[in-house]
Simulated assay, not measured.
Amino acid sequence: MQRSHNAIQLTELSPTDLAQLYAYPAELDQPWVRANFVSSIDGAATSGNLSEGLGTPADRTVFGLLRELSDVILVGAGTVRAENYGGARTDPRHRRTLHDQGIGGHPDGSPPPIAVVTAGAAIEPSARLFTDTEVPPLIITTTVAPHERKQRLADAGAEVIEAGGAAVTPEDLLRVLRERGLPRVLTEGGPHLFGELLAADAVDELCLTTAPLLVGGTARRISLSTHEFRTRMTRAHVVLGDDGTVLTRWARR
């Protein structure tokens, strides 16, 4: 469906149409990194310190679809703690259908695992990430992280992966995901992880929801990095919600 140059009303799209708009490229031989964020009109990435504070019905529809399409959901440890992450809840039948169509999903319908980046293995084993999930999370950490922390996370059910020496670089992350056959990557933040991926030129596309709100305050942007960079993006599509929500997808290549 070629509608990329004009805005589309969300109500005009069937679930199949919407999935085709957000389809991953076929036959990936390396990870394709898609970021998904929500922002207010004035650029706030959170309201009340949570991204959930900016959510709208249209945003939640796309948020759920992007999870259904992905192989893995990549997040930073700070976001896991701040947003009280649990495992992804997806529809097994829909996941199988998306897989049969060759655009995402999973052949047995299982949900995508949450992959957490934490150099120090600094996640509590009692967190929802471990107690409220259908699939074990992946903890991507370093060789220098305390062994006892890593062991506690493994005992809680996680797959603990040592991906770097003193730090986990974007290259380390993508190598780990490629080795595990998880090419359809969805990152949901936070801003530091997204900034690191952007600085490494490792983000293929950004799905950005603009909520019809002005927030003010001191909320952060969706990306933070140690230096400025200028990455040219191309608008793939614009979808409009009835309440003023604007759903855009921006592609690097």
Rank of each mutant, 00 (worst) to 15 (best):
G241H: 07
V215E: 04
L224R: 08
G241D: 04
H237F: 10
T226R: 15
H237N: 05
M233I: 05
L247T: 05
A219F: 00
R220A: 15
S225I: 01
R220T: 14
G244T: 01
V238F: 04
T245D: 09
V215L: 04
V239E: 12
R220W: 13
R232Y: 03
L224Y: 06
H227G: 14
R220V: 14
V238S: 08
V239G: 07
L213E: 01
L213T: 00
D242I: 14
T234K: 07
D242V: 12
I222L: 11
R220D: 15
M233Q: 08
L213S: 07
S225G: 12
T234H: 09
T218M: 07
G217F: 06
D242Y: 14
S225L: 07
T218I: 03
D243R: 06
S225F: 03
G241F: 02
R235N: 12
A236C: 09
H227K: 14
V238M: 11
R230W: 08
L213N: 04
L214G: 10
T234N: 13
G244N: 02
R221M: 10
R220Y: 14
A219N: 12
G244L: 02
G244V: 00
H237L: 12
T226N: 13
G241E: 06
L240I: 03
D242C: 11
D243S: 04
T245A: 14
L240P: 02
L247C: 01
A236H: 08
L213R: 05
H227F: 14
L214P: 01
V246M: 13
V239I: 15
T234M: 11
T231P: 12
V238P: 01
L213H: 08
T218A: 09
R230H: 12
L214D: 00
A219H: 03
V215K: 09
T231W: 15
G241C: 05
L224D: 09
G241V: 10
D243P: 02
I222V: 13
R232E: 10
L240R: 04
V215P: 04
I222C: 07
G216F: 00
D242P: 10
T218C: 00
R230G: 12
D243N: 00
R221T: 11
F229C: 05
M233T: 04
S225Y: 03
T245N: 12
I222D: 03
D243F: 06
I222E: 03
T218G: 04
S225A: 10
G217Q: 08
L224Q: 11
T231R: 15
L213C: 05
S225E: 00
H237G: 00
G217I: 09
R232C: 05
V239S: 08
L247S: 01
T245E: 08
L240E: 08
R221S: 15
H227T: 12
G216M: 02
G244P: 06
D243Q: 05
G217Y: 02
E228K: 06
R232K: 03
V215T: 00
D242R: 14
A236E: 10
D243Y: 06
V215S: 03
V238Q: 05
G241A: 07
